[in-house]
């Protein structure tokens, strides 16, 4: 059974329908990729799933229970966490201090493990505002992973990263999700990366689901090729 689902989710910004009737379901241990051209509504989708934005229609479902009205904090305390496209960290604190702070609130048995896997060991005592951008992205991700959340929503973790950093980031994502049996949603711009990393892929275009399924299936879908893949590299 799916751990976390969006059912017929629609999100409105004034007159614009950013997401329209989107169905996505996440399973534990699986990485579910969401791709689409700019303006496809990917970030809005995560905002709706994480509680940052109220959907205008549809449901967000956790373990079969409708949690659409639940607050951001409720979701986090029930194992739904997210990372941010625009790096959201605590610039004035050291890396170690902020991770400990988050770990205090969300019981994390193995903080050292997260720090290790993401290669943050060297910067633990460095002030977060002063480290390299790529490392800051890893801190953003680490904060999202603390406390063994069951569902992790990743909003373009590779944004602003150089090619090899991006590859490593996606490897980390895959490793950590498999290890911790997390149901992950990966919204990304880097199409090749997504095809490499994900078990299931959903393609959004103009707020609607264009196609969904295993990577090979989606890659071969004529709708997708026409609207999206054909124009990308």
């Amino acid at each position: 059974m799916a751990v976390f689902e969006a059912r017929g989710l629609s999100v409105r910004y004034g007159a614009v329908l950013a997401n329209s009737d989107v169905d996505v379901s996440l399973e534990s241990g699986q990485v579910h990729g969401v791709i689409g051209p700019n303006g496809a509504g990917k970030s809005t989708f995560i905002d709706a799933l994480s509680g940052r934005k109220r959907p205008s229609a549809g449901q967000v479902v956790l373990d079969g229970e409708d949690i659409t009205g639940r607050s951001v904090r409720w979701r986090r305390s029930h194992g739904i966490s997210r990372s941010f496209q625009r790096t959201s960290i605590f610039s004035s604190m050291t890396v170690g201090r902020q991770l400990e702070m988050v770990a205090r609130r969300n019981d994390e048995p193995d903080l050292a493990g997260i720090i290790d896997t993401l290669g943050l060991g060297e910067v633990v005592d460095r002030v977060c505002g002063e480290i390299a951008y790529g490392t800051q992205r890893s801190v953003d991700l680490a904060i999202a992973l603390i406390g063994r959340p069951r569902v992790v929503l990743l909003d373009e973790p590779c944004a602003g990263l150089v090619a090899d950093e991006a590859v490593r980031m996606l490897q980390h994502v895959r490793e950590l999700c498999r290890e911790r049996n997390v149901a992950a949603l990966l919204v990304e711009h880097d199409v090749d990366g997504v095809f490499r990393t994900c078990d299931v892929i959903t393609v959004l275009d103009l707020g609607k689901v264009l196609s969904s399924g295993a990577p090979d299936q989606v890659r071969a879908d004529p709708n997708v090729i026409r609207a999206y893949l054909g124009s990308a590299a």
């Binding site: 951001v72 966490s81 960290i89 605590f90 610039s91 004035s92 604190m93 609130r105 904060i143």
Partner: peptide, 18 residues
């Protein structure tokens, strides 16, 4: 530390269950 977190990035604090 919590106060500093709230000052620095209130949203992320909420997203971290604070």
């Amino acid at each position: 530390t919590i106060l500093e977190g709230v000052r620095e990035n209130e949203e992320r604090m909420r997203f971290s269950n604070y």
